[in-house]
Amino acid sequence: MVVGPFVNGSAVLIGGMAGAFLGTKVPERLRVALPMTFGLSSMGLGIVLIGKIHSLPAVILALIIGAALGELVFLEEKIGRLGNLAKGLVGRFQGEQTETGLTGAAFTEKYVAIMVLFCASGTGIIGAMTEGMTHDPNILFVKSIMDIFTAAIFATLLGYAVAVIAVPQLIIQLVLASAAVLIMPHTTATMMSDFTAAGGFIMLAAGFRIAGIKSFPVANMLPALVLVMPISHLWTMFIH
């Protein structure tokens, strides 16, 4: 049984509740500084995962083709639209104004953005699939540490609705972990190494984005995670 998704969901729930309770008591300097540390943590974990690579050309090819496909189908934009489903739920909980005085439009804009951040991040997708395949929850544990503080910081502005994001996040990660279990019997150690490394590249890009250094279209890179295993397998068979 997987545990990472439940730990990660609990972290968002607890962080969201705590941040909403504290509200404006959290100093502004923390709201600015902590995202930089979150980004640095994601970059560090990405570098560690890239170190597990087996076939660099196969991984780079998967990243290029995957990113091209994501751009062609506007994947990041479509994932962002899914966040609009939160509008009705947010409206029931907080009406036209949040507890911190944001208007309905401003609240929805920010809420949609963080919903995508928590539910569709490369770290969560990679972590859930990795635990499903290898029973190693460490990536989701690291994400949970970052998420509990990230949720708290955002909840100081958006209120208790941030905690609600734990529900779709948990569902998405459980689905991904279950799907990964079906894939596991058809994988090799080489394929797993290259899958992990591809995820590391995406997490590195996500870290740059979180830290505000460079806004990589991380969601558009996600198809690489689907392509990297077959490309790695073919590369090993016919080229390397």
Rank of each mutant, 00 (worst) to 15 (best):
I210G: 14
I53P: 01
H54Q: 13
S10M: 14
K110W: 11
V12K: 02
V90I: 12
L176G: 08
A20W: 02
A105D: 15
A198M: 13
S193K: 11
S144I: 05
A68F: 12
D136P: 03
A219G: 08
A62P: 08
T187A: 05
M184R: 13
F21K: 11
G23T: 08
T134Q: 07
A205P: 06
L45C: 01
A211M: 02
P27I: 01
V226H: 01
T150H: 04
L158H: 02
E28I: 10
K87V: 15
G46P: 10
G4Y: 00
I202F: 06
M146D: 01
R92F: 15
V181C: 06
G91I: 03
N220A: 04
T236D: 14
I126Q: 10
E76G: 15
R29S: 12
A106H: 04
G132D: 06
E109R: 14
L45Q: 05
L72V: 09
T187S: 10
V59Y: 00
M133H: 03
G127C: 02
V218P: 01
H135E: 08
V226W: 00
E99K: 13
E109N: 13
D136N: 12
L61M: 12
E71F: 04
N8M: 07
A113N: 12
V12A: 09
T37K: 10
L140V: 06
F216W: 15
T37V: 15
S232V: 00
L204N: 07
I125R: 01
M146F: 02
L82T: 09
L157D: 08
A197W: 01
T188E: 04
A166L: 09
T196G: 08
A224N: 06
Y160T: 09
R209P: 14
K214Q: 11
L174E: 08
L72S: 12
A166E: 03
L225E: 06
I47H: 13
L176C: 08
P223M: 05
V12P: 05
L204G: 06
A128K: 02
E71K: 11
L34R: 03
A211Y: 07
A128R: 00
N84Q: 12
I64T: 05
G127P: 02
M36P: 00
Q94G: 11
F154K: 02
R81L: 14
A128M: 01
I125N: 01
T150P: 02
G212I: 11
I153V: 08
S232M: 00
M184Q: 14
I64E: 00
W235H: 14
I145R: 00
A106T: 06
A128F: 03
I64A: 09
M36G: 09
I79Q: 05
N84T: 09
A152P: 08
L102C: 02
Q97E: 15
